[in-house]
Amino acid sequence: MSQIRPLSFRLNGVDTSVTVEPRRTVAEMLRSDLRLSGTTVGCEQGSCGSCTVIVDGEPVRACTLFAVQLEGRELRTIEGLARDGSIQALQEAFVEEDAVQCGFCTSGFLVLAAAALESDPFIEDEAIDALVSANLCRCTGYGPIRRAVRKAAKTTRRAT
């Protein structure tokens, strides 16, 4: 009934072709088919944000998007952002501020913050507080994550 389909999109800057079942979510495809396990899956219902990825410049929950919907689109994941150096300031700030405990939520927060800083380098502190409330962290109590993103925003602004 449901056909396995060819799919082409850009993944972290590289043209990528795969075959997927329509019911494959982007999160599942990344982790199981492409072995990119930096995108973590917590709730599978769009609530926790651990699976956040960037599609055509906007943050999206990879568990609520089917892979077939990516045809012709540009997908960026934590692996690509880490490799191309674009989240270096965020990574350093997360370490310095102890914003990582168990680490399950970390890649989701980094991707979310990266999308926010890219779309608005002058993002205000209050907007950062609202931003981080999008994702769930069971460990840190959010204070360190807020401080880390604020710090990275300052560093990024200075560099531009």
């Binding site: 009934m1 449901s2 056909q3 389909r5 079942e21 329509p22 019911r23 979510t25 599942e28 599978e44 089917f66 077939v68 919907q69 045809e71």
Partner: peptide, 11 residues
């Protein structure tokens, strides 16, 4: 958790 199979159309 995997959704049941379906056909996907993008008109």
């Amino acid at each position: 958790m995997t959704p049941a199979s379906f056909d996907h159309h993008a008109p």
